[in-house]
Amino acid sequence: MKILIVEDDETNRKLLERFLSPFGEIRHAHCGQSALERFKEAHQADSPFDLICLDIMMPELDGHTVLKAIRSYETEFGKEGAKVIMTTSLDDSSNVLGAFKSGCEAYVVKPIDRQTLIHEMQKLGLVAGEPALAERR
């Protein structure tokens, strides 16, 4: 599985990387603009991301704008949709509803719980089950 972590905070980035690295190849984007560039480059290289973990509050382009741009690109070019999990500390209904309206598949609130994140990935059919402890190292 190919995973893009879009996160501007280093501590959050490290946490997500450690949670997700057992499940596939990780790429990082530190802001919304760079996320869109990586997303498009991956499509152009015919190697799109299966999962995008997307923060909302970021400089310049926020997560909502990035999500809309991702879905618009996929529609325009007839691409299969990446699974998008919002990973954010914004837990108010307008952010949650707005994100689902724009096409995210799941919404996980920080501080992120590893089990919750993996459970969401299981619901999306991205992982069958949890890797054994030894494989996580």
Partner: peptide, 14 residues
Amino acid sequence: ERIAHSLKSAAGNV
């Protein structure tokens, strides 16, 4: 405000 937001979640993680 964005930095404070970032610090909130960074602190929450640990």
